[in-house]
Structures are given as structure tokens and as C-alpha cells.
Design a protein around this nucleic acid. Sequence first.
DNA 1: CTCGCAAAACTGACCGTTCGGTATAAAAAT
DNA 2: ATTTTTATACCGAACGGTCAGTTTTGCGAG
Lengths: 195, 195
Amino acid sequence: MTQMKKGEKTREHILKTTRAILVANGFHNTSISDIIKASGVKKGNLYYHFASKEDIGLEVLEDAKEEFFQFLAQSFQGHSPCAKVVNSCQAIFAEQKKNNFVGGCLFGNAALEMSDLNPRFSEVIHGVFAHWVDEIERHLSMAGEGSLLLGNVSSALMAKTIVATIEGGIMMSRVSKDQADLKECLVVIAAMLGQ
Amino acid sequence: MTQMKKGEKTREHILKTTRAILVANGFHNTSISDIIKASGVKKGNLYYHFASKEDIGLEVLEDAKEEFFQFLAQSFQGHSPCAKVVNSCQAIFAEQKKNNFVGGCLFGNAALEMSDLNPRFSEVIHGVFAHWVDEIERHLSMAGEGSLLLGNVSSALMAKTIVATIEGGIMMSRVSKDQADLKECLVVIAAMLGQ
DNA sequence: CTCGCAAAACTGACCGTTCGGTATAAAAAT
DNA sequence: ATTTTTATACCGAACGGTCAGTTTTGCGAG
């Protein structure tokens, strides 16, 4: 049971605890009882703060989305557009490493498990990927068409592929328990961008 | 309730029906009751053929694995190693299209949802991805190091990245309900292979 | 400062339902 | 005669969720 920090609101504490469980175990494999045990918050109180299990899941996703967008915004650092994109990808790798590659990507997991349950879920998840792709594309387009290694591939196509590759790489890292899988994907992404 | 074909063994009928449900809804979101309703097989009979829900899930995965390996083996067709790999990827796309992009990749879903449950699950899933990567690498290596567009990327790295990109592309197609997402990833893969 | 009091926060027993799985006996099919 | 299938009733545990009631908190009035 994770201790609640002084001054931390119960609601936030529930969301934070639940997020960790969801990343590790997924939505359907997480029970209210699991959340209660892990957070130390009693059932009645939990349902005082949230309407339902789905509600908790949704708010966890929305919180994570906000956080990810902030993380993303400051992850594009480098001397050239392509370098910025590569550095952003590597920042994501570093984040995964910090979490010991446990549980993979919350959004990727949610995409497979929750997106069909409730349209509000899929809305949030779709929003995450769309924004992520847009951000990458925005940077790539600054590089100019000619400077990309794969001449006939537009920055839009490239951006989408980069996101797909990272998500797939995280998934493979998880199942193989080998962080090299993701790292290697990043090498290829960097190579594609001429870095 | 899907009708059982004449001559089809009950056991196979259960596995086939369950696979479709698992692809669409995932393991934890599928109940024995769902399987019974969808297959028309009575509960007692189901437990006559299978020991447990996990058992069914495992056998579904193993069946799907065998089938995928066969599919994969005959999907590498073309006049050059790289063309073979690209055609294989496009065969997978065609398969997804045939299923209207519903549910994504069973192995990808299982990787996130089931691989932590039971080591036998993760064994099967890991085996699928490992073999898939190996097959691609085997073909790419025939192309010779120099012929790959990204000079400093080994065929092993490339193979892993291709699989990751396809899995990520399937996932993004699912959440965005836009098959173009996967198709576009294939365009980039083809470009990487100089096709 | 402190009393009163309403709102907010919290508690834990309890609800009906569904879960995966079992039991058993009879009927069909091979 | 043996395997396979049906039928139905049942089990305890776990599920998501509710509720009446208690405790804590914030705050304006005296």
C-alpha cells in the first residue's frame, strides 16, 4: 500500500496509484479491490470521488495524456529538426528505462483493451496519438522535403511510422523482456532521419 | 451463435469461436459465458474438452501461432529478397483488411494482456515474434549488406524494426479506425528496403 | 478564540450479479 | 461399450457498486 503524501489530495492519490496498476496489469485485470488495497483508500471513499471504475480509468488516461503532452513538448531538443525528433524518441526510451520497461505504454495498452469499451476512451487515446504524430510531423516538415533520407516519403508518413515503430518496439520489449528491442528500433529511426 | 460446420470437431469449433472473441474483446474481457453463447457449446461439454479458461486461451494462441507460421512461410514471394519481405508485409495488411481491421493482432493484444499471467503464454507469444523476426532477417540477409538503403543498419535490426512497425501500425489502425495508418507504415517500410 | 453547523471526506457492512468451475445423471452418437 | 453431448443445478469467491452513518474540515457569527 502506497502511502499518501501529506497534502496530496485523495483523488489524485487514487489516480496516481491506479495508473501504476493499470500500466502493469491492464484495465480488465485490475479490480476495484486491487485499487483499494494498493492505495489504502476505502471503498466508500473511492466511490465518493469517482462514479465508476470506468470513470477512474478515463481520468487516469486524461491525466496521463496531459502529462505526456508536457513531456513531449520539452523533449524536442537539438540543433536540427531531425535531431530534435530523434532526441524526443530517445527521451521516451529513457522514460521507459526509468520504469524498468514494466507494463509498456499506457496508451498502447489502453488502445487495445479499452478503446472499444467506451467512445470516450478511444477519443482520448486517439487524441494522444494524433497529437504525437502532429508534433513529430511539425518538426520534420521544418527539415524540408529534400533533407529526409527517404526521398519519396512525406514527413506526415514518416511521423506516423515513427510513432508506430516506437509503440511496437515498446510492446516487443515488454514481451521479450529485452529493452534492446526498443533501443534497436530507435537506431533505425535515427538512421531513417539521417542521424 | 456461430453454427458448427458438419464434421467439425467440437474442440476445434470452440477454439475457432473463442479466437474471434479474443481478437475482438481480449482475454480478461471475455467470459466463459460469452464463449458458450457464441459457440453454442454447453458448459459441461466445454469443460469436458478443456481444463480451464487459461487452457482455452493458451490453445487458441498455439493454434494461431501454427497458422501464422504457415501463412508467413508462403507470404515471401517476389523477385528479390527485399521484394519478398515487402510482399510478406503486404500480405499481412491484406489479412487485416479481410478482417476489416477488427481487433488488431491477436499476438499483440495477447502480448500486453496475457504475457504476464502465465509463463506459457509469454513463451508462445515470444516465440511468434522471434520467429517472425528471424524469417524477415533471413531474407534480408540474402540481399547483402550493401543493398539495403540504410547502410549502417544490419538486417537483424531492420527485421526487428519492421515487425515493431507493423504491430504498432495495426494498433494505430485499430484505435483510429483508419486502415491508412497501417498502409502508410508499409509504404515507409518499402521505402526503407528500396522498393 | 470558540462555538455551531453545514459541507466534505471517509467508513465498512452489505447488495445483487457474475465469475470460473464442479456435480451428476441421462441421452446420443460412434 | 465407450466417447461425447446435453441438461440443470449448484458452489464459493470475486466482482462493481450502494448506502446509512461517522468523522473531519472550513468558516462565519458571537
